Computed example of a mutant assay.
Amino acid sequence: MPVVWMYWAAALTLVTLASAYVVRRFGQYGFAALTSFYTIYLGASQILAARIVRFDLGFYSFFAPAAVLIYPFVAQAVDMINEVYGRKKAHLAIAIAFATQVLLVAFILMVNSLPPAPFFGYEDAWRNIFGLGVRITVASWISFLVCQNVDAYIFSWLKRRCERKVWLRSVTSDVLDLTLDSAIFVTLAFYGVMPIGPLIIGQIATKNFVGFIDTPWFLWYRKLVSSLA
């Protein structure tokens, strides 16, 4: 289990350094770079959500989609854009990312409409992972649009009122984003199919735990953006 956190920390460190460097040294390309990272995170989370994994904290273990490790990256990317380029650019990045997800689904549906080669022995596995359910897809889109835009608005609102409290706007906006995302998605996707209470609680706890511990990297990003020459 510690290995996954090493990968997670290394990835977050690398992308924080890269983001700050591009924003500070090549400001005109910073928004494009951050939006690219953002869309990659989002696409990865959509794919990784298909795998349910076991998290063992030593004193407690639970099961959750592997994508919970990526969701805080998504929320933080919006904060990075908002911090430097403002709320309008953050909303633009959200719209761009949403368009890429629609395209991703369209491409998957396009490929799924083709018959498999007779020697392709993994069709059932492919369908299990990429056989998109309409309800789950729509639930994912709605929760994304609502929660990411709420994140952008709350972050911007707190920035205007608490300029120096960088940690406050980062943590508050991410907690609201990740909590709402869990509640909206699980309710829309699984209500009436399975008990949603435990699913919502598990996702809220997991996402916010990971989202909280990534706060130092955002503070570091803010410092790097301000100090890099």
Rank of each mutant, 00 (worst) to 15 (best):
A49W: 01
L17E: 03
N82W: 14
F63N: 07
Q46N: 14
V84P: 06
R24L: 07
A20G: 05
A44R: 03
V74D: 10
F98G: 11
L69E: 09
T100P: 05
Y29A: 12
A99F: 08
Y41N: 14
I70W: 14
R51A: 06
F37R: 00
G86P: 09
F59I: 11
F73R: 08
A97V: 12
I52Q: 04
I70N: 08
M80H: 13
A49V: 05
P65N: 10
Q76I: 15
Y60S: 09
S61H: 13
S45E: 05
L69H: 12
A93C: 12
A106Y: 09
Y60L: 15
H91V: 15
V53L: 00
Q46A: 06
A75D: 14
Y21W: 12
A64T: 13
G43R: 03
F59M: 04
L92A: 14
V74E: 14
G30I: 00
A32P: 02
Y21L: 09
P72K: 13
F98W: 07
A32K: 03
A49T: 03
Y85H: 11
Q76V: 15
V105Y: 08
M80V: 10
I47K: 01
F107N: 05
Y38C: 08
T35H: 03
L34P: 00
G58L: 00
L34Q: 01
L103Q: 06
A32H: 06
L34E: 02
Q28R: 06
F37W: 13
F55A: 01
I81R: 06
F62W: 12
A50P: 02
Q101E: 10
A64I: 14
L103D: 05
D79F: 15
A20W: 01
A77L: 13
N82D: 15
V68G: 08
V105W: 06
D56N: 08
G43P: 04
Y71L: 15
A50N: 11
Q46L: 07
A106C: 06
G43A: 04
V22Q: 00
A44G: 07
R87A: 15
L14M: 05
Q101M: 12
H91T: 09
G30N: 00
Y71H: 10
N112L: 07
Y60G: 04
S61E: 14
T39V: 15
I47N: 03
I47H: 02
A67E: 08
A75V: 14
L104Q: 09
F55M: 04
Y21C: 05
V23G: 03
V78A: 15
S36H: 07
P65Q: 12
V74C: 15
Y71C: 11
I81G: 13
S113L: 12
K89A: 15
V68I: 15
K89S: 14
A18R: 01
V111T: 10
A64L: 13
V15E: 10
A90L: 12
A32G: 04
R51M: 02
Q101K: 06
L103S: 09
F31H: 05
I47F: 04
Q28P: 02
A99M: 10
V53D: 00
L48C: 05
S45T: 13
A106G: 06
I40N: 03
A97F: 07
V111C: 06
Y85N: 07
A32D: 07
F55I: 06
L48T: 08
I40A: 11
A32C: 05
A20Y: 02
S45L: 09
L69K: 08
Y71S: 11
L57I: 03
Y21S: 06
F26W: 12
G30C: 02
L69Q: 11
P72F: 14
R24T: 09
A67D: 12
F31D: 02
V22D: 00
F62S: 08
